Simulated scan of single mutants.
Amino acid sequence: MSSNERIKIIVKRLKIIYKNMSIEEILRERGIVVCPIYGCNISKGAYKMYDDIQYIFINTDLSPEERLETLTHELGHSILHPDVDTYELKSCNCTYFLNKYENQADLFAAEFLLHDNIIENICGCFCEVGDGKSIYDIANDYKVTAELVLIKLSNLDKSKLNKFDLTLDCISVLNTLNC
C-alpha cells in the first residue's frame, strides 16, 4: 500500500470516528494543545511533541480559512508521524525529511478538507463539460488554497475519471496534475 493510499484510509477512519466534529473539537478530543504564536510572519504553524504531550503552534495572524487548513495540516503531522518534531526540522537543514513530512501533512489536509467528488465540480473547467469551476472557484467554495485543491486532484483515484466524458485534451491536462 502506498503512502498516499494509507493517508486516504487514515482520513476516512478519522471522519467516521469524529463524524461532524470541527478540527478544534478533534484536537481537544485527542488531547492536542494548541498554542498561539503572536506576530510570527515566518510560519503558519508547527507540530511538536514534548513529554508525551502533542502541541500545535499556530500563527495568530492567519485568516480563518488559513487557520483551518493549517490546523488540519498540523493534525496530519500528529497522526502520521507523531514522534517527528517538525518544529525542529524547520530549524535545521533537513530538507529531504522536512519535504517528505510536509507533503504528507498537505495530503492529509487535502483529503480531510476536500471530498472525492471534487472532480465533478472542476472537470468542466478543463473539459467544457457542464458548468465546471476553476481550481480557484473550488478553493474558494471549500475555503482552502488552490494548492490544496491541486494536491487533492493529484491523489484522486483515476477510475473516478472514467465516468466523465473526458476528451484527450482534458485527460492530458489532468495528467499534468498527476491525477
Rank of each mutant, 00 (worst) to 15 (best):
T176V: 03
E74P: 08
C92N: 05
L75S: 07
L98Q: 07
R67Y: 09
V84G: 00
E120W: 01
L89I: 03
E88N: 03
L27P: 09
G76I: 10
G31E: 09
C125N: 15
L68P: 00
I16T: 14
L98S: 12
V129F: 03
L113V: 11
F126G: 07
A139F: 08
Y18D: 12
E120Y: 06
L166H: 01
N162D: 15
S43N: 05
D169N: 09
D52I: 02
F97V: 04
L150E: 14
C92G: 02
V173S: 06
L168F: 02
T86V: 15
D52E: 15
N59G: 11
N155V: 00
N103I: 01
D165R: 04
D165E: 14
I32D: 13
K8N: 07
G132K: 08
L156K: 03
C35Q: 13
A105H: 12
C35I: 14
K133M: 14
L71I: 12
F112K: 11
M1I: 10
C179R: 07
A46P: 01
K12R: 15
D52L: 12
T95F: 03
M21G: 00
D141L: 14
N99E: 11
I7C: 10
E88Y: 15
I79T: 12
L71Y: 06
C123Q: 10
P64N: 11
I7H: 11
K143S: 13
L71R: 05
S172M: 03
V144W: 08
L174K: 01
F126A: 13
C179M: 09
A110C: 02
I16F: 06
